[in-house]
């Protein structure tokens, strides 16, 4: 600490990193209290996301799941892209980890604009923070508006079928809805980037589903894991599996906008994307080895 070097008490303090940090934190607080920050039309609050939420998630990302990212260069530094990923883990932690991976590992620090199910936006608190973190409702107008604005949009076409599947079906991709994401990419000419996420399947292994309770609460499933609901709130602690996220090679769609209205072409392309994600998942699984291993696979992946 350079405290001892300082001479007069009235000297302006420069180069003192802690002073800078305190000043920045106070300025940040002041902006939040007086509302002097910007959000976009979708409700994305970049300041809150990068200054508060990302630092909270980073320990989970780095030390708990030890996420390793492969192929980040497949995401363009500017312009739109549609990131399509597998979905798993009972709770959609894979979505926030994917967003953090893109922001932290991409040289252009790109924000992932996730498309979520309407259930997400029905829920209090979760719906509020989903919007603040840049998510919006998975619907064609929003997807196209974001892609036309040159954003990186993230979708999980498996939806609740993906995160709510039993542990025994781990890493087996579920059906991809209507392939609306493909149509949105075709219409806007955005490249599709298939993403495979390994590790999220083991965080809350779903061994049961209490259907009557799910129906009562109006949710797609009520999870039973080895720790939940038996251990109460402790059961909410995710297991520390090792994660690998691979951004696959882009599939370019520029100039194919007329195919967006051709259901056959849309289904074909959706199937192709699904196949790539599945193949990459199998390869990543072999690369990773045990789900809770401490060994790093960085020699292979770099």
């Amino acid at each position: 600490m350079p405290v001892a070097e300082r001479t007069g008490p009235r000297e302006p303090i420069t180069g003192d990193i802690w002073d800078q940090r305190v000043a920045n934190a106070l300025a940040f607080l002041r902006r939040r209290i007086t509302g002097e920050y910007e959000i976009d039309e979708f409700g994305f609050d970049p300041e809150l996301s990068t200054q508060v939420i990302a630092p909270l998630l980073r320990p989970l990302y780095r030390h708990w799941f030890r996420v390793e990212v492969i192929g980040i260069e497949n995401v363009p530094a500017a312009g739109s892209a549609l990131v399509v990923a597998n979905h798993s883990g009972t709770i959609a932690l894979d979505a926030v980890m994917l967003a953090l991976a893109l922001y932290d590992e991409h040289p252009a620090r790109r924000h992932l604009r996730l498309l979520g199910a309407d259930l997400v936006f029905q829920l209090p608190v979760i719906g509020e923070y989903a919007r603040k973190m840049g998510a919006t409702l998975a619907c064609m107008p929003d997807a196209e508006r974001l892609l036309e604005a040159g954003e990186v949009v993230g979708v999980f076409p498996e939806g609740f079928k993906g995160i709510g599947k039993p542990f025994s079906e781990r890493y087996r991709l579920q059906r991809f809805g209507r392939g609306g994401f493909v149509a949105a990419a075709l219409r806007t000419g955005a490249p599709i980037i298939p993403v495979s996420i390994v590790g999220a399947e083991e965080i809350y292994p779903l061994i049961g589903n209490i259907r009557p309770l799910a129906r009562l609460l109006g949710v797609p499933y009520f999870p039973v894991t080895p720790t939940f609901p038996w251990l109460g709130p402790l059961g909410l602690v995710p297991l520390p599996s090792k994660w690998l996220i691979e951004f696959g090679e882009p599939i370019y769609t520029l100039g194919d906008s007329e195919l967006a209205d051709d259901p056959m072409a849309v289904f074909d392309l959706a199937d192709r994307v699904r196949e790539i994600i599945q193949q990459n998942l199998y390869r990543l699984l072999r690369l990773r080895g045990g789900a809770f291993s401490h060994s790093s696979s960085s020699e292979d992946s770099n």
Binding site: E41, F42, G43, F121, G127, T136, L137, P141, D142, R145
Partner: peptide, 12 residues
């Protein structure tokens, strides 16, 4: 509602 797009156009 929670099922509406983020922005309404005149056609929504």
């Amino acid at each position: 509602s929670s099922r509406d797009p983020a922005l309404f156009t005149e056609e929504t």
